[in-house]
Amino acid sequence: MRHDLITLNQWIDTDSRVLDLGCGDGMLLEHLVENKKVRGLGVEIDSDNITKCIAKGLNVIEQDIDNGLSNFADNSFDTVLLTQTLQAVRRPDYVLQEMLRVGKECIITFPNFGHWQARLYLMLRGKMPVSKMMPYHWYDTPNIHFCTVKDFELLCKDQQIKILHRTVQSAQGADSTIKTPHWYNKLWPNFLGAHAIYHVTR
């Protein structure tokens, strides 16, 4: 199993209500429905992804997160997920606030721009980093708000968001079954972690 899933899994209760914002093709939600028996709802804007979710038997609604979550009641979900989407929204700070209004707890994952490879790329080449994980150019990327682990934690501090857990994963570990060594998380996560996973609450 993918390591980011193992990490997420331990923070989500069986039978709980889960809202997955930007759920993509529903891979994560399907995993949680099967393994955690969650009552899940996905939110997505891509039409092909919506059909894929429906084909998996998932609940998914077509909605643009940038237009807010006002149709969801306060505390109506146990966990609200935002995986690999934070950097693509217009106002990450508003989205975070809305997530914490709708959900009791939130899980956010994003590519860490403070990762040493990104820093090295920019330093040596003087250009915005392009990698396998972030394959776009600066002008055509849907990822309009890149941040680092440090940036994210500063925002959390500003908004009085409580960080319950933080995990970073190596470039290989994020998308595979290769386990990221523990010392990554202890020693300089903003430098070593390519991929950040946060579990937060109010």
Binding site: R17, R39, L41, S47, I50, T51, C53, I54, L58, N59, V60, I61, E62, Q63, N71, F72, A73, S76
Partner: peptide, 21 residues
């Protein structure tokens, strides 16, 4: 249709929604 969907979400029912272009 969104009014239908939002009521269903509020009632905690299983719902999928597509807005077809």
């Amino acid at each position: 249709s969104r009014e239908i969907v939002n009521a269903l979400i509020g009632a905690e029912k299983s719902v999928s929604y597509a807005e077809v272009d």
